[in-house]
Amino acid sequence: MFDPAQPVDPRDPDPWLALTLDRSLPLDREAKAALARDQTSRSRQFLLPIVRPLARTMIVVAQLVHIVSPRWPHAPRLLHRSIAFGMRHFLTPDANRLILRHFHLGGQILRFISDNATPGFHPDLEPMRPSCIEDVRDNLFLKHDLNIYNFLIALNREMDRRGATLRPVARLDFSAIADEIELDPLPAGWLNVIDLQTAIEIYTPAYALLLTDRDFWRASNSLQLDETIGLYAARLTGEDRHLAMINNRHPLVPFSTLRAGFRLMLHGLSTEILHGFLRELKARQAVRL
């Protein structure tokens, strides 16, 4: 198990120890340590190389099925119950923590943008505050994807109505950005050994098969909206350092869905970085007041 306090051999330094101790990225320390532990697990080392090519093959199979039948299968409840079952019985506590945490961060970032871009108006979105794995069963992943598109549509229509544009705000409203995310205790049984990246590769073909072709396409391409949300935050804060750390770009030119699993990992990292960046700005503004 990776330990940030482990002794260092100068002739063989641990790359993950260096990355964990590094402070160049504005990442929450506990989340970063959880990600490092997950990335150094035996599951990621030995299982992921086997799972990834099989998973991408199954995505192709699922898309061939949807060429013939674009709207069938369509079983979002079965998909989310299966995901929740896997999370509860097979994923590491760190993987589960990062998954549940992601929904909170995404919801907070969207609320921050609307608080400052259109004060008094907030798009009507599904709540994203899961405290336990069972909350995933309520189509949480699908609602997360829908939220981002519904947010962009409602926010920009309201800005058009007001004749408003995104511009730096002198005193930003950071009330949506929380420093702590509270979750219920997570399972840590002897079977809870699957790391986050391997789990995502397994879930992605299930997502492709059990949702309609339109739902999967929309979910996959929502990842490229990392750039859009990052630009919104940059224009409101007047700061753009975080944009260099966004890897899912160019939403008008969709990427192949075959790499959706890896891009989802990048999406999670981008969300953590943007949220950490906003927390830094929040603390900086509090000192000035």
Rank of each mutant, 00 (worst) to 15 (best):
M245A: 14
F85I: 08
L258H: 09
Y232T: 02
T57V: 06
L17Y: 01
D213G: 06
V287N: 07
H104C: 05
T118I: 07
P123R: 05
T118C: 10
I181D: 02
L98G: 03
N248F: 10
R249Y: 06
I148A: 05
G268E: 08
L274W: 00
F151D: 15
A283Y: 01
Y232D: 02
V60R: 12
L183H: 05
V8Q: 14
H89W: 10
D28G: 15
H144T: 03
P76R: 10
L269G: 01
L47A: 15
A206V: 07
L25W: 00
F255E: 13
I133M: 10
I181C: 07
A206K: 00
A164W: 13
R77D: 01
L278G: 00
E280I: 06
R167L: 06
I59P: 07
T20V: 11
F141Q: 11
K282P: 08
N247E: 15
D179M: 02
E134R: 11
S43P: 09
R88C: 00
R37L: 03
A18L: 15
F46P: 09
S270N: 12
I109V: 15
Y232E: 08
I202H: 05
H144Y: 11
L91H: 00
G106F: 02
P130G: 11
N150P: 04
H267T: 14
L17T: 06
A244V: 11
A234L: 09
D22S: 14
H267G: 09
D240M: 07
A286R: 04
N248D: 13
P49W: 03
Y149H: 13
D135W: 14
H122E: 15
T20A: 08
T20F: 12
D240R: 08
L100D: 01
A176H: 01
L266V: 08
T198W: 01
N116Y: 02
I113Q: 05
T165Y: 12
D138N: 14
R88A: 05
D115K: 02
I273V: 15
T271Q: 05
R23F: 03
L98P: 10
F255W: 14
T257N: 07
L264S: 06
L252Y: 02
L264H: 10
A188C: 09
E239M: 06
C132I: 03
E30V: 08
G189W: 13
T198F: 03
L183A: 04
I109C: 06
M245L: 15
M128D: 07
L258N: 07
L48W: 03
I133S: 03
L105K: 08
A286D: 15
P254S: 04
L258E: 12
V51K: 04
D215T: 10
M245T: 12
H66W: 11
F90L: 13
H242G: 02
F262Y: 15
P73N: 00
V193D: 11
L289S: 12
D215I: 12
T198D: 10
G86V: 09
R42F: 05
R111L: 10
T92F: 09
W217G: 00
R23W: 01
V60F: 14
P49A: 10
R288Q: 13
Q108Y: 00
A36F: 05
G268S: 08
A62S: 12
L243K: 09
L17W: 05
V60K: 11
L79N: 01
L19D: 04
I133C: 06
P127Q: 04
G120D: 03
